[in-house]
């Protein structure tokens, strides 16, 4: 007979919000947090990233999977403290740009994998990035943009972050960014896609 936990995982894998909502209370009642993460959340996230990378999953499916994982995280964090990696990431879309879908995918992935995330949203001013990063003593600042009109501000925020928090690592990403532009901006890494982001992040923090 299929366990509640495996049905739960199947509900997220098949992106069935109704089934997930129905069984979530039971899953939380019968399983501890470690089991929910190791047998539910992490396999789903790993699978979604792999399927996306292998082109068996589109962006809508990835978005919905992450949205359902976020639902689980919200539900379980009401009762207990979710174990964190003790690494803080500040995320945002730079001022002048409102395209935040990519940033939201990254945010949900980071949270799913246990990072502490401060999401500043979109159209974020340079000073907001710096103030937030200083305030939480960020390990990583992730800055996204889909446009070329924002690159000057992107360079400005990276320079200021390096001055204020010498050890901070900055990851940049978005449609217009490539490795050459990231290098020119003096970013520590270029996030090419959601599938490889966690490995890129772990590499920076090693």
């Amino acid at each position: 007979m299929q366990s509640v936990l495996s049905k739960f995982k199947e509900a997220i894998d098949s992106r069935n919000r109704a089934a997930l909502t129905e069984m979530l209370p039971l899953v939380m009642e019968e399983n501890d947090l470690g089991e929910i993460f190791s047998h539910g959340v992490y396999p789903v996230l790993n699978n979604a990233r792999e399927e996306f990378q292998n082109r068996r999953l589109g962006i809508p499916e990835l978005l919905l999977s992450l949205d359902l994982v976020s639902t689980v995280l919200k539900a379980v964090s009401k009762d207990v403290e979710i174990p964190k990696r003790n690494r803080h990431i500040v995320l945002g879309v730079i001022e002048g740009d409102t395209h935040d879908m990519g940033k939201n995918i990254i945010r949900d992935l980071y949270r799913g994998y246990g990072f502490e995330v401060t999401d500043l949203g979109k159209n974020v001013r340079v000073s907001q990035f710096v103030d937030a990063a200083v305030s939480v003593n960020a390990d990583i600042v992730g800055i996204s943009t889909m446009m070329s009109t924002t690159l000057d501000r992107l360079g400005e925020v990276i320079q200021l972050l390096k001055e204020k928090i010498p050890g901070v690592k900055v990851i940049v990403g978005g449609a217009f960014i490539n490795q050459k532009i990231a290098d020119g901006l003096k970013a520590d890494a270029y996030a090419e896609d959601a599938a490889t982001l966690i490995e890129t992040t772990d590499g920076l923090l090693a």
């Binding site: 992106r15 919000r17 809508p60 919905l64 949205d67 935040d100």
Partner: peptide
């Protein structure tokens, strides 16, 4: 983002 999820739901 919302449109893409609406395509599925």
């Amino acid at each position: 983002e919302r449109l893409y999820m609406d395509l599925l739901e």
